[in-house]
């Protein structure tokens, strides 16, 4: 490398890092200047984040309790089977525990010997088996909508992977080319910085962060300065458009935990977000465990290959 190209590289590094720094400062400044009721959802700390991430079994069990007692009244979880509750990497209930838990679950029965699925206008049911999917609260989407004022409570099976925290970004219209350029450079640098930060921290928890934020961002009254919402809707800071059909599902002491954990709203929100993450990614622990071994292996092999390459090339100019 010539001195000149080194200088160019140095200049490039300085420019990039400088603009990243500038963007960060500008972003921080922007926050201070924003109106007082502006809402900033934050990244939470989760036991399952990072390279060595693992679920907290007790937390998953609490999360299941919340789903079972609260969410499942309206939300289905069609990709889950009761047997999943005892599989490794999850809440790891014992078989007997799960059997006891599903003793009162009734699943729609297969057609009986007369070919009927209804008796006296009621759906015929049978006791749930371990291999059955979680019982859905409604027979179909139309029934779910009819029971919920026209809004469909979404299935929660992969919810924790289907949502993310909203990205920060100006998106503001700049009225002249100079401001557009400045805004553009700042936003681009912020994006580069954001990607770098995500990769360094292996950020994959946008879904649980969103769910936690959604559970904790209800307002009883529409805050001052916010757009009015229809009467049958509820105000939630993080929900797109702020008007959400779901009434606040959790508050302090919504569920009385079997393990004696203090039932605060914050605790409920963390527990259900964790549970939904496991539901969306039941192989998360296996993935991270396998991944660590794979990375160590590939690192060793690539170091060996580097030594081989050096040994082979040692006599050659190139």
């Amino acid at each position: 490398m010539s001195i000149k190209s080194k200088l160019v590289a140095l200049a490039a590094i300085l420019t990039v890092s400088g603009s990243v720094g500038f963007a960060t400062i500008a972003e921080a400044g922007g926050h201070d200047g924003a109106e007082h009721n502006a809402y900033h959802p934050a990244r939470q700390s989760w036991t399952f984040g990072g390279i060595f991430g693992k679920f907290d079994r007790a937390q998953l069990r609490r999360g299941y309790q919340i789903y079972d007692e609260v969410c499942s009244a309206c939300h289905s979880m069609k990709l889950m089977s009761y047997r999943n509750l005892m599989e490794s990497g999850g809440p790891e209930f014992t078989k007997d525990e799960v059997k006891k838990m599903i003793a009162d679950k009734a699943v729609p029965a297969e057609p009986n010997d007369e070919g009927a699925t209804y008796a006296d206008g009621e759906r015929i049911t049978r006791p749930a088996l371990l291999t059955d999917r979680f019982v859905s609260p409604y027979e179909n989407d139309k029934a779910a909508m009819a029971a919920n004022g026209g809004a469909l409570p979404p299935d929660l099976s992969v919810m924790a992977k289907a949502r993310s925290l909203p990205h920060a970004g100006s998106g503001k219209e700049a009225d002249n080319i100079f401001f557009a350029t400045v805004a553009g450079i700042k936003e681009y640098a912020g994006w580069v910085f954001g990607v770098a930060r995500d990769i360094v921290t292996q950020y994959q928890e946008g879904g649980p962060d969103y769910i936690y934020a959604l559970m904790t961002s209800y307002e009883e009254e529409v805050p001052e300065g916010a757009k009015p919402i229809p009467e049958d809707k509820n105000f939630n800071h993080i929900f797109p458009g702020n008007a959400i059909s779901m009434a606040p599902p959790l508050s302090d002491e919504t569920v009385e935990y079997a393990d004696g954990t203090k039932p605060t709203l914050d605790q409920h929100a963390r527990d259900i977000a964790t549970f939904l993450m496991w539901v969306a990614e039941p192989k998360l622990e296996e993935r991270k465990r396998t991944g660590f071994m794979a990375l160590v292996y590939l690192f060793i092999l690539s170091m060996l290959m580097y030594m081989v390459k050096r040994a082979i090339w040692s006599g050659q100019k190139h």
Partner: peptide, 19 residues
């Protein structure tokens, strides 16, 4: 091969941790 295996390492990082 040295480079390919190193790139596989980065790839594995994404497969397992930034899936």
């Amino acid at each position: 091969l040295f480079v390919a295996i190193s790139v596989l390492g980065i790839y594995a990082f994404f497969v397992f941790y930034m899936s």
